[in-house]
């Protein structure tokens, strides 16, 4: 897993609620066996005119002032819908390392951690305030510090965000989740033996 510690970066605003993973990565881009090549897929139905090639000048991410943004500011319930990890793959490959929103859909939220993207939940009034500031100020940056669990504005205001303690450590260290779970293989084996006694029908598949 790609670690995340601190990030100071340009912020791009996507001021819409309920942005779903079909909008983040339309299904036609899922027809691949690769884990890369998704930068072009990000918000494809909004980002391009017609043919997935010509940039739509009206779409916010296409504005020159947001080029090189590493922090995406979004509306409530971001990442709802499908479980496709292609959505965080596209977000990461495009260049974002952090998404800030009032709330995230569960599966998307989990998927972010597995791809080195930090999902930051801040109260809705704070996010709405940040939208105003980003839109009003060209070159607006935020500083995100995972260890301290803070987002700091250019004028020095500090917002705390919540995060699960284990996930935080895993992300700071870039933990290999599978390796960590496999380090508890004895407990998994013991569980399987017990479960086979208690619910043998679960194991009767073959």
């Amino acid at each position: 897993m790609e670690p995340f510690t601190r990030l100071k970066g340009l912020v791009a605003p996507l001021n819409r609620t309920n942005v779903n993973t079909d909008e983040i990565t339309p299904a036609r881009f899922l027809k691949t066996i690769s884990r890369t090549g998704f930068a072009q897929a990000l918000f494809a139905n909004w980002r391009y005119l017609g043919d997935d090639q010509t940039p739509n000048p009206d779409f916010v991410l296409n504005q020159p002032r947001y080029q090189g943004a590493t922090i995406l500011l979004a509306g409530d319930n971001f990442g709802c819908g499908s479980s496709r990890e292609h959505a965080p793959w596209a977000i990461r490959e495009y260049g974002f390392r952090c998404v800030i929103a009032p709330s995230f859909a569960d599966i998307f939220y989990n998927n972010c951690f597995n791809n080195g993207i930090l999902p930051v939940t801040l109260p809705e009034p704070t996010v709405l305030e940040l939208f105003k500031e980003v839109e009003a100020t060209e070159g607006y940056t935020l500083e995100v510090d995972l260890a301290a669990q803070t987002v700091t504005t250019p004028d020095g205001r500090v917002f705390q965000f919540p995060i699960d303690a284990f996930r935080k450590q895993a992300m700071l260290q870039g933990l290999d989740n599978i390796g960590w779970t496999l380090s508890h293989l004895d407990e998994i084996r013991a569980f399987e033996e017990r479960r086979q006694q208690e619910a043998p029908w679960v194991f009767s598949l073959k």
Partner: peptide, 16 residues
């Protein structure tokens, strides 16, 4: 679950 979690379940039969 996402694809990374699929890999986790395939390898460990568990999820975090």
């Amino acid at each position: 679950i996402g694809t990374s979690e699929i890999e986790h379940v395939l390898a460990t039969q568990c999820l975090l």
